[in-house]
Structure formats: structure tokens, C-alpha cells
Design a protein around this nucleic acid. Structure first.
Lengths: 216, 216
DNA sequence: CAGAAAATCCGTATATTCCCGTAGAATTTT
DNA sequence: AAAATTCTACGGGAATATACGGATTTTCTG
């Protein structure tokens, strides 16, 4: 038995660390490592691993965009999310897409291997630390069962980017050749979908969810 | 010659990776590893390394807050920032505080060791990738020499946090027992200091600068 | 202690965001 | 082809945020 594992993380340092943790295991074989979303998609078209360790924050595409595509195109690839992004909303989203595991980057060797093994057997597995944390969050909030996916439309995504770039509704309208009302409607839809009340929370949440690249 | 190196990163995985890269070097000795800002400060009060590898994003305190304190208290400790936060503003800030090196997490073994060596000799060292990138950014923007530190007062920082938490001016005023006008004035000061025009840009910039912790 | 910086307060005015709707056209899904 | 979703567009009104200018008290610092 040899489990083919691919790693996707924009930090070679992290890939290094993960590789070290897995190197000792006889049944695990690291076949590919990628540092960007495009590289990953390209590599997958060539050959598929059994288990894919996927980081959420990549330079080009976010994991939240990649996961659905990968699962649809390569249903045999089991995805284990391995990231530091640990908001409850994020975890829910990724699991609802069909990701099997969700590990935090602070995980230890034992948990990491356990996560990979579970995913390989197509069983769900959550980082124990995360499990505890989610439980606490659920207990504190009123709405326990909202499997929110935060799926924005193309237009909404486009406008979200412009909002975060600092454009006002008026400017957005001008740039997109639509009326300010329409731009406004989109902004409101985004606010509702992301369950926030104002622009400040919106920007924060969008960054939390990895919906946008906030660098530069 | 033995250089004592301490590592601070909230991800054990990253610490693992860094350790591996440095393990082979005969002159480098890893004396301490920390996963939080408080742990770091506590550890430093016991014993100080020659070189401190410091991540920007820590669970409790941000590197931008820690660096000035550490440099003031322990001037013998050379700080090398090792992070994925790579905005020009951020780099400028950290260097102006007295950090000697700035490396990206995507760095390779050779560069990492070079950075540590330079810092140990009290020489500045920038990741070559970052250098190139900064150059490009400088060429594109109009204002090349603004050594802006974005120093906010205590009150402003406090209010910035509340803004990003989603509070309105009114709510901030109520929570802090000040008039809405005052809260407003502070918000405007923050906008001016950070050179932005609206809340969306403010939140983004604050996160870029590492001024706030956007996790959870 | 003196001066500087910070925190507090206020008036007026405009700009922008947010909330409540409705509705036809285009696109995608079933 | 029918159903669902998305995109576009518009109105009225309330709430917030931004801009400009000025002023007093408190706190920090040399």
C-alpha cells in the first residue's frame, strides 16, 4: 500500500515541514508539490494523487475557488485542507464542497498522518483543536446549522474587488458602465451573502474567507 | 563560533521547516522556539538569542508591535523578519524599527542562512525576491521616499480595532463613553494617517500593515 | 515646569452607505 | 421547454461617513 500525496502551499518552508513530517511514514509517498493554484491545476491534469493537501491562501487563486473545481473534475482526489485560516465559516464552506479533512498548520505529525489516512479511506476528519474550537463557537452563536457557502456571482466578486480597492459605489458604476443603483444592489447582495452589516466587516470577512487577495 | 537562533512562528509546521533548513549548518544553533508573542517576551526575559526569526502574524500580538519593544529592551538581539506579509509599507515599517533582515517564507535554505549571517554581523539584508519586488513597486508609484511609519496613538489603535470589528461611529462612542464627534475625529485622523479615503481602504491597509489581527 | 502631543468636544455641510421595495432581460439549470 | 438564478435597473428614505474648520482639557515628555 502506497498513498500518493500532493502538497500545495505557497511557502516552500511549509512544504518542507510537511514533507519532513511525512517522510518517515512507509505508506505515504509525496508525488508532487505545488506553490500556486495554476501550477496545481496544471499538475492535476497530468496525474492525480490519492490525497491532496491544500492550503487556502495561494498567490493566484484561493482554495475556496479551487476545491469545487478539483472535486468536480477529479472526484477520485481526496482533499485535505491544511491551512491557518480557521474561521468557522471557512471550515463549513470547505466541507460542504466535499473536502474530507481540515487540518490546522499548527498540527503535529500524528494528527497530520491520521488526517491523510482518514481522507484516503474517504472518511471525514477534523483537526481535534479545530473540533473543540468549532464546538465552542457553535455553543456561543445562535445559528448552528447554517451551511453557508458564501458563493458570490461573477459580478458580485468583481464589485467586491472594487470595493476593497477603495472604490465608491459611484466610481464602480462609472467604471462598469452601470447605474449607481445597480452597483448598490450588488453591494447589498454581497453584504447579505456574507452576513455582514457594513463595509468594514465586509472587507474583513472577505479577507478572512480568502475571497480576495489583500496583498498590495 | 555558534550563533544562537530563536524562532517565533505560530505554525509548528513552519518552525519544523525552518529548523530543518538550519540543522545542517555547523555554526547555527536553535536555542528556542515560540508560537506566540507572549511566550516570546517571556522567553526573552530568561535568555536572549543572537538572532531572532520573527513572524509577523502571531495569534496574540503582531510583529509590528513586538519589534519595537524587543529592540528597545534587548538591543543585542538582531531581528530577522520571516513572514509572508510582504507589502512595501510593512517592510519599511519593520526596517525603520531597527529590524535587520526581511525574508519571505518562500525563501530557500541558502538565503535563509545568508540572512541570519548578515543579521548576526549587524548588516541589513533583504530577500532578493523582495528586493526586486520593492524596486518594481517604487518605480510604479510616485512617492518613493516616504518613510511612513503609520504610527497611531493608543486611542486611534483602539478605535481602529473597533471599526474593523464592524462597529459604527455611534457604537464606538457608546462603548468608549465619548461623544460621537470625538469618535468621528479619531476615525478621520486614522484615515489621514493611513492615507486612505474610506473605510474599505482603511480596513485593507490596516490588515496589510499588520496593524490588526484579522483572524476569527 | 513648560511645551508638545494627545484626547476630547462641537458646528455645518456634503457624500456615501444601507434598507425597504419592484421588475424585466439574460443566463443557467433541470 | 420550464424553472431558477443572475444581472440589470430604479425610487424613497434613513443612517453613516467624510470634509472642513476650530477649541479646550488632559497627558506625556524633556
Amino acid at each position: 500500500m502506497s498513498i500518493k500525496v500532493a502538497i500545495t502551499d505557497d511557502h516552500p518552508l511549509a512544504i518542507n515541514g510537511i514533507s519532513m513530517m511525512l517522510a518517515s511514514h512507509p505508506d505515504i509517498q509525496i508525488t508532487d508539490t505545488y506553490t500556486s493554484g495554476t501550477a496545481l491545476l496544471e499538475g492535476l491534469s497530468q496525474r492525480q494523487p490519492d490525497v491532496l493537501l491544500l492550503d487556502m491562501l495561494l498567490p493566484d487563486k484561493s482554495g475556496i475557488d479551487l476545491a469545487p473545481v478539483i472535486i468536480k473534475t477529479y472526484p477520485d482526489v481526496r482533499i485535505v485542507v491544511l491551512t491557518s485560516l480557521d474561521t468557522p465559516a471557512m471550515v463549513k464552506s470547505m466541507l460542504s464542497y466535499g473536502c474530507l479533512g481540515y487540518l490546522l498548520k499548527g498540527t503535529d505529525q500524528h494528527t497530520l498522518i491520521e488526517g491523510i489516512m482518514h481522507a484516503w479511506r474517504r472518511e471525514e476528519f477534523l483537526d481535534p483543536v479545530l473540533k473543540e474550537y468549532l464546538l465552542q463557537t457553535m455553543l456561543k452563536t445562535d445559528k448552528p446549522n447554517t451551511a453557508n457557502r458564501y458563493v458570490l456571482t461573477k459580478r458580485e466578486t468583481q464589485i467586491l474587488h472594487m470595493v476593497i480597492a477603495g472604490d465608491t459605489t459611484q466610481q464602480i458604476a462609472e467604471k462598469l458602465f452601470i447605474s449607481a443603483r445597480t452597483a448598490e444592489t450588488h453591494r447589498l447582495s454581497i453584504l447579505k451573502k456574507l452576513e455582514v452589516k457594513n463595509t468594514a466587516s465586509l472587507v474583513k470577512k472577505a479577507i478572512q474567507l480568502g475571497l480576495i487577495d489583500y496583498h498590495i
